[in-house]
């Protein structure tokens, strides 16, 4: 029934906002730091696990969420150390941390799954109370965007942006790029864990598999947001972050729609991956087309080798 579909849209919006916070984390590493950080597949579950276990253990909500964020930041630190101090390529560093977190998450939860029923606990967000959840999620999204806007506007925040924009220039200008890279990863995974903490409450459980493919959802949200809403952002950093959340909401609306249309939900991960692959390929294809066009003279050969 179409009315059922419409009724399922608020849930899509709520989910989109939760995953949107995680996508902002992906935006920080992927777009700002220019690093593909796969830690997120593990750290979103870490955030969920820490939050769930603490709420079940009777800790106050604010403490549970704060702890989730801090432990999430720690996961970013691990990847940062693998990458920066041990010279491991960023992607592999993230995969290694993911594996570390698989064990860590199981140990935190003490099982593969911990239930966090909204009936039993006083949760911030829950599927059962969608409108309250959406309201609270809007507050979270605004707070996250505002804080990041302020942070990336500071001297230190600008140095993180510079690191991603031009490593060489950053070092020449005295920026400790090891530190900025690590801090970017820490910040990103803190946000991802926050998203995990909210997700655990929303879906009423924390599950060892909940982060599988999170990076792809995050990238999809970033890319969809830029493609559909990029025109709104221009140069405004805060709006750019909002477009990421909007991209995530669109992703979940599409998700809900295809399920409504009767598609087997098992196909969704594959479709997301293909969607992301195509969007990532477009700029590459464009570049190659330009290169082979006769109008463009070959770029002057670089002299980099002999300089070394």
């Amino acid at each position: 029934m179409f009315i059922n579909y419409l009724q399922s849209l608020p849930a899509a919006i709520a989910q989109g906002m939760i995953w949107g916070i995680m996508a902002i984390g992906v935006y920080i590493t992927y777009r700002i730091l220019d690093v593909a950080d796969l830690t997120v597949d593990g750290s979103i579950c870490t955030g969920a696990a820490v939050c769930a276990v603490m709420i079940i253990g009777g800790q106050p909500m604010w403490l549970a969420i704060l702890a989730a964020i801090l432990v999430g930041m720690l996961t970013g630190l691990v990847t940062g150390i693998f990458h920066v101090f041990m010279g491991i390529p960023a992607i592999l560093a993230g995969i290694l941390t993911q594996l570390v977190l698989w064990t860590a998450n199981l140990k935190i939860m003490g099982a593969a799954n911990r239930a966090l029923p909204a009936m039993k606990f006083n949760l911030l967000v829950a599927r059962l109370d969608l409108y309250k959840s959406i309201f609270i999620l809007i507050l979270f999204v605004f707070a996250v965007v505002a804080l990041l806007y302020l942070f990336f506007g500071t001297e230190f925040g600008a140095s993180i942006r510079a690191t991603g924009a031009n490593l060489n220039m950053s070092r020449a200008q005295g920026i400790n790029t090891n530190l900025t890279k690590i801090f970017g990863l820490v910040l990103s995974n803190g946000l991802v864990a926050l998203s995990g903490a909210l997700l655990a409450q929303y879906q009423g459980n924390s599950d060892i598999n909940m982060g599988k493919g999170a990076i792809v959802i995050g990238l999809a949200a970033v890319i969809i947001g830029e493609a559909l809403f990029g025109w709104m952002a221009r140069n405004n950093f805060a709006i750019k972050l909002f477009t990421v959340v909007l991209g995530s909401i669109v992703y979940y609306i599409v998700y809900t729609t295809v399920i409504y249309l009767g598609l087997d939900a098992d196909y969704l991960k594959m479709l997301s991956a293909i969607l992301v692959a195509i969007f990532l390929a477009v700029p590459y294809w464009k570049k190659n087309l330009k290169k082979s066009s006769p109008k463009n003279k070959p770029i002057k050969e670089k002299k980099a080798k002999e300089v070394a």
Binding site: F151, G153, T154, E155, F156, G157, A158, S159, R161, A162, A165, N166, N168, M169, S170, A172, Q173, G174, I175, N235
Partner: peptide, 27 residues
């Protein structure tokens, strides 16, 4: 020598802080 995705004045501000602590003050 410059960060292409950042503004001219941002690039200059980053250079002006060469060798100094980068704090949480506005950039």
């Amino acid at each position: 020598g410059t960060a292409a995705t950042m503004e001219i004045e941002e690039n200059l501000a980053i250079a002006a802080r060469r060798g100094k602590r980068r704090t949480l003050r506005w950039r």
